[in-house]
Design a protein around this nucleic acid. Sequence first.
DNA 1: CCAAAAGTGTTGGTAGTACACCCATGA
DNA 2: TCATGGGTGTACTACCAACACTTTTGG
Lengths: 228, 228
Amino acid sequence: MKFTQKIKVSVDAVVFGYTPSEGLSILLIKRKIAPFKGNWALPGGLVRNEETLEQAVERELREETGITINYLEQLYTFAKPDRDPRNRVVAVAYFGLVRPDTFELHANTDASDAQWFNIQELPVLAFDHQDIIKLAIQRLQSKLTYQPVGFELLDQKFPFSDLEKLYATVLNRPIDRRNFKKKIMKFGFLEETKEKQKHQGSGRPGYLFKFNEQRYFQLKKDGINFEI
Amino acid sequence: MKFTQKIKVSVDAVVFGYTPSEGLSILLIKRKIAPFKGNWALPGGLVRNEETLEQAVERELREETGITINYLEQLYTFAKPDRDPRNRVVAVAYFGLVRPDTFELHANTDASDAQWFNIQELPVLAFDHQDIIKLAIQRLQSKLTYQPVGFELLDQKFPFSDLEKLYATVLNRPIDRRNFKKKIMKFGFLEETKEKQKHQGSGRPGYLFKFNEQRYFQLKKDGINFEI
DNA sequence: CCAAAAGTGTTGGTAGTACACCCATGA
DNA sequence: TCATGGGTGTACTACCAACACTTTTGG
């Protein structure tokens, strides 16, 4: 009845970043070792014996990409016996969001081994990371429709149109500006500031908005029904 | 940089059963070995090297309780370093539903080591199983409000009031009979049969309903917005 | 003055909620 | 005939969706 279990435990992180100009991106790293050496993959790795899964994710992100995560939650555990060609590895996938102002990587060169990829232009991926990303995108979409997400993906102050574009991009459908604004403002977690957007090319500059953190997190905690 | 990982992987199952008379129950086993010997715990155990997590859950349920599961999905992975006092064990928790007609265990004696417990009357539990159950109940509640669940918890044919009681019990609030019926019937996955409920004590017998499986699973797959 | 993006209200339809009386059965 | 639970319809309200013109800025 006794047997020796030979299964390892790893974490992988799907980290989303968003900018109005470049859309929704995912952070990937280029693998330096086999298997899938030279391929792009999700940041992640084996869990140490004494750390929590969240600590492991944060450690790997620090080591591999230098990024500071703003929001992190568990996504799903992937465990097909043959998902790693060498040993059996059970991967606990995490879902993360970062703010544009922590996008240091965007300035990196192509030679870097950590890089943002627009979700429309993902490269071939190692392991089953394609599946993990697919699930993460679904999670982001559904989160967006039942919880106010956005604080974690936008700067502290932003023009209203950025939020609208975020929703349109992630949900992949057009948003009616007037109805959207009515709906969002009714919740009361957004406040208009007196500041205006700096000249961004052409067009009328909009006022900047900011989140009322207290009310925002209260609503998130209550899992308020959002229904965009 | 190299280290030897000493983490084991297990599965635990939170299996829900429902009867109109006894309400919502969870299947527990009594542990025969340390740690927590003699305590009640969720069915589960270590994953074998070559089996999937789902296979492990089904095997453990077969070995420990003899139950046939009707619906199974992954719930969450619990991994606090000290959740098992001996070794570090990462537990992938599953969420399961069974039909009343597979409730063989209800007939067992108190001496049995597998037993149904009403969710209002749970015993002290081993490990962090209390937390796992808490999360599973939340999941069941939220599933009920955005997906048609019920097929997996009720017999093939049932009076409409059973479905209503199921929702009232799980959501822990009263349901307006007329509005509930209107809402449910609009989806078209329930069909009225000509049969009537057998005498169940007193009162007028209701017609029996059955699920239109095809339409039911179509709606489930589409993740239709349900909003009871 | 032209192009580009921001700001703003009204109306009609629909879906949700509240609510109470009669009916069939067994004891 | 009484107690118990099943079956049924309407009216009001609130939310959502559709929809277009004016304003501000930079070039």
